[in-house]
């Protein structure tokens, strides 16, 4: 699936758009765990961030579809 990453998470994950293979029935929490991959800095940045699914904030227990667009949103700093 397509995952958009911004700001600190874009730098940590090595790009603004990453493609991730997920198992059927995976939730947002599963994806976040998979992206963190037991790396402390990634885990900290992901746990401080919110996740949007198809442009709307998503709960951690939401089940993902292969065609979803997921965006990882660190704390914002606009203006």
């Amino acid at each position: 699936m397509r995952v958009l990453a911004f700001a600190r998470l874009r730098e940590l994950l090595g790009g603004g758009e990453v493609h991730v293979a997920i198992a059927d029935g995976s939730t947002v929490a599963d994806l976040v765990r998979q992206l963190a991959g037991h790396r402390a800095e990634h885990t900290a940045a992901l746990s401080a961030s919110r996740v949007a699914r198809n442009g709307r904030l998503a709960g951690l227990d939401e089940v993902l579809g292969e065609d979803d667009e997921i965006a990882l949103l660190p704390p914002v700093g606009g203006g």
């Binding site: 911004f6 700001a7 600190r8 914002v76 700093g77 606009g78 203006g79």
Partner: peptide, 14 residues
């Protein structure tokens, strides 16, 4: 508007 944008808009600054 500016207060809410700073709080909520998905925009980031380095």
């Amino acid at each position: 508007t500016i207060d809410a944008l700073k709080q909520r808009a998905p925009i980031w600054k380095k």
